[in-house]
């Protein structure tokens, strides 16, 4: 199952790379969302998949009974999802702000920080 998931992650990454290479920064944001999903799945798959055994300890027991899913990557992914959301929200606001300020979503035309060679304005 992990192998199939690995291929799906590859598709996700390919899609997000394609979107992040776009001129339109809104597409870039879409790519950002997809690539954080891909990263989360990668961490998750790296900890191996276990079906139907969440990492919980039964009432009265000291430790989970039998083999349960790997809790560590789940904790990491939880953190990553929230941070990824923070990044996404901030990036989205930046895009909105850039559009109101510059009137374009084309990253090729956003040259305030690194103006083209030639006489500076």
């Amino acid at each position: 199952m992990e192998s199939l998931l690995a291929i799906t992650i590859g598709v996700l990454v390919a899609g997000s790379v394609y979107l992040m290479l776009a001129r339109n920064v809104l597409r870039f944001i879409f790519g950002l969302v997809l690539i954080s999903n891909a990263a989360n799945l990668t961490i998750f798959a790296g900890g191996r998949l276990t079906e139907g055994a969440p990492p919980l300890i039964a009432e009265g027991a000291d430790a989970p009974a039998g083999l349960v899913a790997n809790a560590l990557p789940q904790a990491l992914v939880l953190t990553a999802i929230v941070i990824g959301f923070g990044l996404f929200a901030f990036a989205l606001v930046l895009v909105v702000r850039a559009y109101t300020e510059l009137g374009t979503l084309n990253s090729d035309e956003m040259r305030v920080a690194e103006p083209k060679e030639g006489p500076a304005k």
Binding site: L12, V13, A14, G15, V17, Y18, A22, T42
Partner: peptide, 21 residues
């Protein structure tokens, strides 16, 4: 061209993950 690069990155990621697994 971007699509080709994207497919290459995706392939590399998949292969890396398979190697890890």
């Amino acid at each position: 061209a971007d699509a080709m690069l994207a497919v290459a990155v995706g392939t590399v990621v998949t292969l890396t993950l398979l190697a890890v697994l």
